[in-house]
Nucleic acid binder design. Sequence first.
RNA 1: GUGGUUGUAGCUCAAUCGGUUAGAGCGCCGGAUUGUGGUUCCGGAGGUUGCGGGUUCGAUUCCCGUCAGCCACCCCA
Length: 444
Amino acid sequence: MQIKALPGFRDFYPEDFAYRRHILEAWRRVALRYGFEEYDGPPLEQVDLYTVKSGEEIVTQLYAFTDKGGREVALRPEMTPTLARMVSARARGLKKPIRWFSMPQLFRYERQQRGRLREHFQLNCDLIGEAGPAGDAEIIALAVDIMRELGLTSGDVRVRLSDRRLLNAVLGEVGLPEGQHGLAYQLLDKLGRGEYGKVKEALEEGGAPPDALARLEKVREIRDWDGLSDAFPAAANAADPLRQVVGTLEAMGLGEFVDLDLTIVRGLAYYTGVVFELFDARGELRAICGGGRYDHLLEALGGDALPALGFGMGDVVLLELLRERGLLPQASPQVDVFLAAVTPEDLPEVLGLAHLLRDHGFRVEYPLTMTGVGKQLGLANSRGARYAVVLGPEDRKRGEVQLKDLGSGEQRSVSQAELPKILRGMGLEDSRAPSPQPSQTSHG
RNA sequence: GUGGUUGUAGCUCAAUCGGUUAGAGCGCCGGAUUGUGGUUCCGGAGGUUGCGGGUUCGAUUCCCGUCAGCCACCCCA
């Protein structure tokens, strides 16, 4: 019986890893572009970190166990508690607003489905210490720009935007007491779905006015500010922050991505303001990204009271969407130059030349076992090499090599000494790390 | 955790009503080709039909269990 990867866990074969890297590098590029700094924490934490505030539900889906020291521990299911702890520990000393991002691998023990595994990579971007709507717009713009970075347009991806403050005003306007807001959120989330009836019954049994629920259903049809004012004239006043967020996004030129959608609830209980999700425009896949404002969470976790907001974006659904839209990168050549030896006597020189080229930062391969030149060129071809260098007795006599462009088939004889310079001139990149720069101390 | 559905080669699929040695394409390996790759041609390897049990003279096919994938719940990183 062959042992396979655990259910919900992925093997990343080279082609899969290339896709993963494509996504994670796009995440990092855009986050850095927004001035965010990267951080990380431990993948294993005390269970208490998650049981205190993250809601009871998450605890039932933890990868948790007792370690050899008798500690109750869990693989991290989300990053926010770790972030809150790290920020709290240094909150007084950090310049606000704090812009931090992380790309942790997260774990949840639940039955897997398409787009939902037991492990995934998730970009977390958080903006801490900024209470105004400009911060909300900044964080949403970051999420949208990642979509654009990956080649997705407003025809592929939509932002659905809502605001807890506005929703609370709506619930108040229709006459639902605060004690029933939790169920009402569930109702909104289920609008138009099969389980709607169950939640509705629960609300009615709790004494919710039937006409209030009927009125609440209109939330589903609201798509713009006029629609909001018509349906809920009193609550519309609470829409100011959200209007400012949308206005800011429009000023950035990202307005075409954004839809007002008050049925966006988000499961996490700690959201206090703007909440949003990113979906594929056809609505076939699960949410790509979800986030919002959580102004009281840091204080609730025992830290300073700091306004905060952020989002999480997983790699799994994003990968599916990119695959469907044909936006995944073609496998790029893995080597620049493949060296071929004509006879075994040429091998020492091939090895020396290979090493020289590698020292220059070229990606170089040569055959590990001696075969015919045809076979070696076949290998060069299958390795995606751009150039082949053929070295035989005749070439050695003249101190030259045959340089062959494997794309065009053109071949010429060039001197060994000038090979690095010639290759550089043909546009091959230097894979070496840039030479060290004096460290910048601009923060001081 | 609950319910439904599907499992045949690395991948995509075929195999008549339950009937001989489970096939094809792609991919992989070798050869045609001992100083020149891709294309082409020839050949080869690769299967306990997910696994276990049952019915039957005989099971890829029918039944049960189990594991895994998918879908819907639950819930939503």
